[in-house]
Design a protein around this nucleic acid. Structure first.
Length: 427
RNA sequence: GCGAGCGUGGCCAAGUGGUUAAGGCAGUGGAUUGUGAUUCCACCAUUCGCGGGUUCAAGUCCCGUCGUUCGCCCCA
């Protein structure tokens, strides 16, 4: 009755799960650092027009999935549904092109789409993404794909496959679109309802339809590859060769058409067979026209985004949650001892040790139980007699060995303690 | 936005119209105001997502609503 709950399609990431997130983010950070990608953080909301112009008015994302509202200054604002548009806006606005050369960027953070929630699909979800701006070299496509592949591999995911396609440049697509509509129009009445609608709005997406009859019709449709210019074809061949050189396997999927309008040339999707309907773990491609379209200098670019929640679903099947390491668990009982325990715990922390202080004041037996479960290497025990002598009991939890130490000298023996802890942990 | 399934304590879960809603895990207190296991005892849902209805009687049936899961759609 009346209790406030998280909104539909949103959820809390509790500490046990956050451990997974931090681990994945750490792996990503390392990969990106090694590859000279630098992190960029852009606002979570932007002017609505950025997404309408960038992603495309005809797309479902813009047409029916955006969280848009009018703010108190009467501006139309939208919670970002993806981050490529925002990164490009920042690139233009901050004149990153003026820094010369290629900008390699990565980001992570929440995105928002008003969709029906399902496993692996939420209204607030999180993406990890990479963008390379300023290179039309096919090696940029290969590099960015290789980083995605290596990251997925380093976090241990298996059963992944990659689909690859080229959607050509603007002119290629326009020509192909015309040919496709010409082919499909006579079949219009046989297409499923969604595809009929898309025939005028976004015909390339019909290729993706899961409807059986539509699929039968599409089998004999003109092939996108046949409508690529010689230059587009040559570029795609170079990307494919580069991937082969890197031992990255993929399958050509001439029907892979991504749902955001800005893609040109390379398009790819990495899917897992362990995810059900929301199988795409990573998707991306080249977007050579977007920066100019948003008012910047004509600049070629490639990038991708991964769905963090989908990674987590897979990861939880594969491994236990990473456990934080703790050095000391501090147990105490009695007023004087409890006061000293607080000071000792904080003093240890100031020297760089991990120390968890038991605040319960309950029987020693209970506190030891918690010490055992905390995963700490050693336990520090303070009772009435220790408080009186300014001493403490140091107990190594694995071996059960216990020794009495003077508090002052104990706190001044950091180097020796560090060694003892490392040794105890490794046995 | 469309179609279908599900909803009992922090977690797992029995219960299919009849008096007080099993059990397990976890938790808290104690047996044992100073030592981790095991054991034992006690406590831990005026209530079965929420609201309404049918009935002498509803966790069990009906309607609505919210949430969730699966598929479509879309995408990461």
């Amino acid at each position: 009755m009346g209790s406030i709950r998280a909104l539909r399609g949103t959820r809390d990431i509790l500490p046990d799960e956050a451990a997974y997130w931090q681990w994945v983010e750490g792996e990503a950070r390392q990969q990106f650092a090694r590859s000279a990608y630098r992190e960029i953080r852009t606002p979570i909301f932007e002017e609505t027009g950025l997404f309408a112009r960038g992603i495309g008015e005809a797309t479902d994302v813009v047409g029916k999935e955006m969280y848009s509202f009018t703010d108190r200054g009467d501006r139309s604002i939208t919670l970002r549904p993806e981050n490529t548009a925002g990164v490009v806006r920042a690139y233009i606005e901050n004149k990153l092109a003026g820094q010369g050369g290629v900008q390699r960027l990565w980001y992570t953070g929440p995105m928002f789409r008003y969709e029906r929630p399902q496993g692996g699909r939420q209204r607030q979800f999180h993406q990890l993404g990479a963008e390379v701006l300023g290179s039309k070299d096919p090696r940029a496509d290969a590099e960015v794909i290789a980083i995605a592949q290596d990251l997925l591999k380093s976090i241990g995911l298996t059963n992944l496959t990659m689909d690859l396609n080229s959607v050509g440049d603007k002119a290629d697509r326009a020509a192909y679109r015309e040919a496709l509509v010409a082919y499909l129009t006579p079949y219009k009445d046989e297409l499923d309802a969604d595809s009929q609608d898309r025939l005028t709005r976004n015909p390339l997406r019909i290729l993706d339809s899961k409807n059986e009859r539509t699929q039968e019709i599409v089998v004999d449709a003109p092939n996108l590859q046949d409508h690529l210019s010689p230059e587009s074809k040559a570029f795609f061949d170079q990307v494919r060769q580069a991937l082969t050189d890197l031992d990255i396997s993929y399958q050509l999927n001439p029907r892979l058409v991504r749902g955001l309008d800005y893609y040109t040339h390379t398009a790819f999707e990495i899917q897992s067979s362990d995810l059900g309907a929301q199988a795409t773990v990573c998707g991306g491609g080249r977007y050579d026209g977007l920066i100019e379209q948003l008012g910047g200098p004509a600049t070629p670019a490639v990038g991708w985004a991964m769905g963090m929640e989908r990674l987590m679903i897979l990861l939880k099947e594969l491994r236990e949650a990473p456990v934080a390491e703790m050095d000391f668990y501090v147990v105490s009982r009695g007023d004087a001892a409890q006061a000293q325990a607080l000071k000792i715990a904080q003093s240890l922390r100031r020297q760089g040790f991990g120390a968890e202080l038991d605040l319960s004041g309950s029987a020693f037996g209970k506190q030891f139980k918690r010490a055992d479960r905390s995963g700490a290497v050693a336990c520090i025990i303070l009772g009435d007699s220790e408080a009186e002598n300014h001493s403490l009991q140091l107990k190594w939890l694995k071996s059960g060995q216990q020794e009495e130490r003077q508090q002052d000298s104990f706190l001044q023996s950091a180097d020796a303690l560090r060694q003892q802890i490392d040794q105890a942990r490794s046995t």
